[in-house]
Design a protein around this nucleic acid. Structure first.
Lengths: 112, 112
DNA sequence: AGGGATTTTTGATTTTGTCAATAAAACCCC
DNA sequence: GGGGTTTTATTGACAAAATCAAAAATCCCT
């Protein structure tokens, strides 16, 4: 079987943004959420490339929306997290929780 | 000022492993911690390359240990997280907490 | 049909993750 | 006191993820 692909740190944030935004999320809104909530300012192309990779990995699905009806513009493409995506998100969260467990941060950094 | 380098997901785990292990951490022990606690099995070279990058970024420092006295072997190189490293770790943790906040995972994934 | 508006896709590059293979020390020992 | 063994660290080379500028694809309007 293929070696399981790791989840990059931006991929993780994009999945989380998708969960927050719900099923009518699309490029620009995701970018907004990344900037506003996560403090991560990336170009719109970065968002799309990441979404495509997540789709290839089977963590999200997408479908073409209806044209908006408003003045001009290509139809949106909507994205949604699949159960596999939720699973991997929870997995990486648990790993980090385990790694933080029992870590005393004061002192460590200033020691010596 | 230089655009702040992002923290990769492995870099993050290595920083956490260092915090857990304390100031006598070195290559092999870090690798063990990654495998045992984080479930991430990487080669020893991967560990070192990551440590070097973290050092270049100013998140860890290292120094050469005394030879162990036991039968053979090059002296260990010890690593320690700097305050800047602790800071960036806390920063990424807060970002993820904010992103998880209010996310309802049941249903989202199965939602129609 | 042509033009402006909005959204997405495509190159192309830099940064991170990855490991096999090689090098560096340190000890032993004859 | 040089060769072998052991442990640790470094290099070199490539794959995967992150990044953006520029180009393409639709859609609405006149």
């Amino acid at each position: 079987m293929a070696p399981r692909p790791q989840l990059g740190d931006l991929e993780e944030l994009v999945l989380l943004a998708l969960l927050r935004l719900g099923p009518d999320a699309y490029g620009a809104g995701i970018r907004e959420e990344l900037r506003g909530r996560a403090g991560r300012s990336v170009s719109i192309s970065t968002v799309y490339v990441t979404l495509m990779r997540l789709e290839e990995k089977g963590y999200v699905r997408s479908w073409k929306g209806e044209p908006s009806g408003e003045r001009g513009g290509k139809a949106k493409r909507h994205f949604e997290v699949l159960p596999e995506g939720v699973g991997v998100l929870e997995a990486v969260r648990e790993v980090r929780e385990r790694m933080w467990e029992g870590v005393a941060v004061e002192g460590e950094a200033r020691a010596r």
